[in-house]
Design a protein around this nucleic acid. Structure first.
Lengths: 215, 215
DNA sequence: GCCGTAAGCGTACGCTGTAAGTGTACGACG
DNA sequence: CGTCGTACACTTACAGCGTACGCTTACGGC
């Protein structure tokens, strides 16, 4: 009682709580009032530490890129890009709100620039032209974003789900109208998202490597 | 005056107006009241024709897939997929709200199933295994979604923008911290989104073709 | 003891989606 | 011609949203 029993509100605690709230109940459930309640505080108290909801959302994006972790560029372009792309995909896929949030931000993210710079830097360091490096960045980034999107929004259940019966039922229901979809049904249900991601990633990486063999 | 002067509200007119409103002022500006106002009607009148806002958003997704147009599957797998993927990318990129909207829908879209079925069907018809067809679908879909995402959310301005000075300024500002990004700056500013998309797409398509040469 | 400052709280305003109830115009029928 | 059924637009109301503004409380330095 002599010292402050409750730890004071800080920007970091607010962002952390926002991430947890969005993880648990979805981005649409993230409101200033609920966020305050989760921290044992009224909504307006948050404004002493953050600029507003947009500021919180921007910070969540920064948190996201930070959660990718440092990018190791020492293993050579192809191997390093593989690891970094995997890490980025995992970071996005770990938070169902990531893609939706990213798609609504128009502020530029420092974190995204850092990742972009590291990936492009590896290519340039290995002797690729700025043109190819630019192409490669877009191709890899597309694959990461697009695959994370598919993994998060898959209607065929996520890996942890034991709800596979529901998926079979779904496919059976559409089998007549979409026969080809039904044909690949088994793969849709039990695919490993990491292996699936790597398949496409390797198509891109080996394709780029074939363009201009590094010295 | 004898006949109804104003044409009656219909579901189609509502969806069309919703798309236009979102195109013009962004998805966040799409509210039932504003949508009603755009149609010369009170918000609640819309509920006579649609189930609610979620229903409208779902229908906008269907509209989106419909706008891709019919998929020609007669040109052989690789060429047909190229054309279809380009059409899909263009359809998404034409509406800045497309990715955000898609990422928030958890209902499954008939339109997306139709596209998926057509693309997978082409591969199977050309003799590819269900496994490779499944991989290929994910790789192509990722590229389409991911690239549309990047094109829409690019902070480096869109092709039409004559606001290139702002971009140069932006890159110069970050040049010291992100030197590799600055190095590819010229490409970031003046790249053709269609050609850029095709570059990555061809990496994927030729990579797949190399796996199992069709008969 | 006193006061400046920081920070949490309460209230209020204009938005949002939509449930429920209130007309009202029009075609069908006696 | 009168009457009624139906379809559909309107009005009102409510809970929840982000947040501007003002009040109150707690604490460190003197």
């Amino acid at each position: 009682m002599t010292t402050t029993e409750r730890q004071p509100l800080t920007r970091e605690r607010i962002i952390q709580a926002a991430v947890e709230l969005a993880d648990e109940h979805g981005l649409e459930a993230l409101s200033m009032r609920k966020l305050g309640a989760a921290l044992g505080v009224e909504a307006m108290s948050l404004y002493n530490h953050v600029g507003g909801k947009e500021d919180i959302l921007d910070s969540m994006v920064e948190y996201l890129f930070h959660s990718i972790g440092p990018i190791d560029t020492t293993a050579g372009w192809q191997a390093s890009t593989r690891v970094a792309a995997m890490a980025a995909k995992r970071a996005f896929a770990a938070h169902p709100w990531s893609i939706t949030l990213l798609s609504t931000r128009e502020t530029l993210s420092e974190g995204s620039f850092a990742v972009m710079d590291a990936m492009v830097g590896m290519l340039l360091a290995d002797g690729y032209s700025t043109e190819v490096a630019h192409h490669a960045w877009h191709a890899v980034a597309s694959h990461v974003m697009g695959y994370a999107f598919q993994e998060i929004n898959s209607v065929f259940g996520n890996l942890g789900d034991p709800d596979q019966g529901h998926v079979e039922e779904l496919i059976a229901q559409y089998a007549e109208r979409f026969p080809s979809l039904a044909a690949i049904g088994p793969h849709l249900m039990c695919c490993s998202y990491d292996e699936e991601f790597e398949f496409g990633l390797d198509l891109i990486l080996t394709g780029i490597a074939a363009l201009e063999p590094p010295s």
